[in-house]
Simulated scan of single mutants.
Amino acid sequence: MARQYDPRLREFADAREISFLEAIEKHGKPTHAAKALGLHHSVVIRALDNLERRAAKMGYSPAHDMTHTVPDGFRVKGTSTLYDEDGKPRMQWVKSTVDHDRMEVIMREAAAAMAESLPRVRPVAVPAKTDAALCNVYTLTDSHVGMLASAKETLDADWDLKIAERTLTAAFCHMVNAAPKASVGMVAQLGDWLHSDGSGGLLPITPQHGHVLDQDGRFSKIVSTSIRILRRIVDFALERHDKVVVLLAEGNHDMASSIWLRAMFAALYENEPRVQVIDSALPYYVYQHGKTMLAFHHGHMKKNSDLPLLFASQFPKVWGDTTKRYCSTGHRHHVEEKEHSGMTVIQHPTLAARDAYAARGGWLSERSATAITYHSQYGQVARNTVVPEMFEAA
């Protein structure tokens, strides 16, 4: 007897799976459908098995009395069904949770659509004279724009949207002015740029674990401030460098927001040939400057000691073409620098104040940001550091 497929599976199918279902309707059996499509029957059967599993995750599996589906971006976490004495379902409870993989796809599609209507930045004049051998990397990590912190509560410093905007903008401008006149300037935003991700119905919670965060204002206000800061930073870098490389890395606080930030800035500077936005879904990033390899990761997925081997494995061509290799990370809010086999891993601190959670946990770190200058042949050749006290209002 030919295997039957529920017509409602079309609601959960992609174009390829729909073509398989239509072929089965026309030819009767999966084997006959596969032959008509020029495929082995196992390809069709496996694809439709995956479709049935995916539909079940969204709450649809009639064979198991599951017919209550959940919205796109969610998956069924569990069902509880009450049956009567005749074995018929009388009541059913459906528990759902966010499907993070599907939500990421939705975010990417939304960001791409939003970017289509953005006004593009016009090209600006190239700076007079720069050193082609140099690349300045301006690292800002764990900035937590939108965080609310009180010095009275943390015994550290205040932090809110206004302070974040003033501190981050001033710190970046100071680093650029103090650094050598390099041809390449890299805005290395290493993740956790936003304190909260706007997930959970725009609630101030962490994306993965749902921890409640201290947030300064509504998410829409945080987004507008965040974009304004980054725009100023990139525009200022363009005034001083022939080429500006923009990295907007994924952090554990802004896993979704990093997606639309990358899409937005790639669209904004689409007509500016001197801006390169690194657009990678993988949270491991590289940029090659001559014989110098510059690698980046927020630090939330791998230990520092594991990063050299990971980057060598994932980017073997860049690794093989370079003799000086550096990896920058953040996440832990304090300084650590260590040479490993073939690569130096630099863990950067943050300019942001600590919040109540960090204060109650007893975590302390010196606040600063560092610009590092790399030579195309010799690797790291200069540094300059800023601290937030340099930009406090008089």
Rank of each mutant, 00 (worst) to 15 (best):
I45R: 10
V124D: 05
A267Y: 03
L82Q: 14
F219C: 01
Q314F: 05
Q208E: 14
T350D: 15
K324I: 13
A149I: 04
R3D: 12
V386Q: 01
E11G: 09
G28T: 06
S341Q: 07
S196P: 01
K29H: 07
K77Y: 07
V137E: 03
D279F: 10
L194I: 12
R274W: 04
K181V: 10
E389P: 09
R46N: 09
P89K: 08
L155H: 14
A125P: 00
S258H: 05
A352T: 14
M264R: 01
M343G: 02
A128Q: 10
G299Q: 11
F12C: 06
T169C: 06
L148H: 05
Y285E: 06
A36S: 11
N271H: 11
M1L: 01
R354M: 14
L213H: 02
E270H: 06
K162Y: 09
W363G: 12
T344W: 07
A13T: 07
K324Y: 13
D216S: 12
S226R: 12
G201Y: 02
I205W: 08
M255T: 04
S196N: 06
F219T: 00
W363F: 13
T225Y: 10
D14F: 05
L190E: 02
W319N: 07
L37G: 04
S280D: 12
P388L: 01
A382P: 03
L48V: 01
Y138H: 06
Y269L: 01
H174F: 07
T31I: 05
P283A: 07
L190H: 08
E250A: 02
T225C: 09
H40N: 10
G73D: 00
L213D: 02
H331C: 07
A356W: 08
A266R: 05
D321W: 14
H100R: 14
D142E: 15
K129H: 06
N304P: 05
T329P: 14
E272C: 03
L203V: 03
A171N: 08
D235L: 09
I227Q: 02
A359D: 10
H195T: 04
A182S: 10
R325P: 01
V275K: 00
S150T: 10
E336C: 06
G38R: 04
P283K: 14
R120Q: 00
A358Q: 11
